[in-house]
């Protein structure tokens, strides 16, 4: 089996969000970058577990980004994977990422592709589905469990107020979220091994060059006017405010 895991570089969950004075782009100064948590904790770790279960599995990682994404890719390789690819493009839209990865998939050939459910910066939640659509492969989104018996994949997926369990054969694209696997901290052996694993830079395909969207500007949400504190013991006042002022009950 040949698995591809899509990795994205994102600002740390605790990063201070600020924009350039013209409000056109995200201010990266002093921001710590991490592997997108959904890609790392769930997609990558589950793929590594599958490789442990089926040792002849080939596990590749791919990211679409500039050279500054390579430390993230090395960190991912320290958790697992045989080789990594970086498509050299600074994407701003979902389809740029998906078109870049699809071009590699068509050349290299895979059986199974994992993505995180979304990135925590642009929250697009679209790369997995778009990629599957380009490849015309079946797609299961928001998976909380994935098992493979050598022929059939059993995938559990979250729905409104419950979950669905479905079966599919490969090839398949799955977007992953909490429940798929437990977070793993890379060990020293993994970190050392990652330094020498192949990392290949690919040119972005022509169809991925032009984004379908343009970002006009960003803004931070208006500051809350401040919390209205109610004395304990005066819960009836809270109920009154929720009814008369907020009008939510």
């Amino acid at each position: 089996m040949k698995i591809l895991v899509c990795i994205s570089k994102t600002a740390d969950t605790t990063a201070k969000i600020a924009f350039t004075p013209d409000q056109k782009s995200f201010l990266e100064t002093g921001v710590q970058f991490i592997i997108n948590p959904y890609d790392e904790w769930y997609a990558l770790v589950r793929a590594v577990e599958l490789k442990e279960q089926y040792p002849d599995t080939v596990l590749h990682l791919i990211t679409v980004g500039g050279a500054d994404a390579e430390p993230i890719l090395r960190k991912a390789l320290a958790i697992g994977g045989d080789a990594a690819f970086r498509v050299d493009l600074q994407p701003i839209s979902i389809e740029q990422v998906a078109l870049s990865i699809a071009a590699h998939v068509k050349q290299e050939g895979y059986d199974l592709i994992f993505t995180g459910k979304e990135t925590i910066d642009y929250n697009g939640s679209g790369v997995g589905g778009y990629l599957a659509g380009l490849l015309d492969w079946p797609f299961v989104s928001l998976a909380t469990r994935f098992d493979y018996n050598g022929q059939t994949a059993t995938v559990e997926r979250e729905i409104e107020g419950g979950r669905e369990i479905c079966e599919a054969s490969l090839p398949l694209v799955v977007s992953c979220q909490k429940g798929m696997a437990e977070q793993r901290i890379p060990n020293m052996r993994g970190i050392m091994a990652a330094r020498t694993k192949p990392l290949q830079v690919l040119a972005a395909p022509p169809e991925a060059q032009q984004p379908a969207i343009s970002i006009d500007h960003f803004a931070l949400p208006p500051k809350k006017s401040g919390v209205h504190l109610i004395e304990p013991g005066n819960e009836e006042e809270l109920v009154r405010l929720l009814h008369e002022e907020a009008k939510v009950i």
């Binding site: 969950t13 925590i120 960003f218 949400p221």
Partner: peptide
């Protein structure tokens, strides 16, 4: 965007 920490105007 940024998990609700900011808003983007996109065309």
């Amino acid at each position: 965007v940024f998990s609700g920490k900011a808003t983007a105007w996109i065309k």
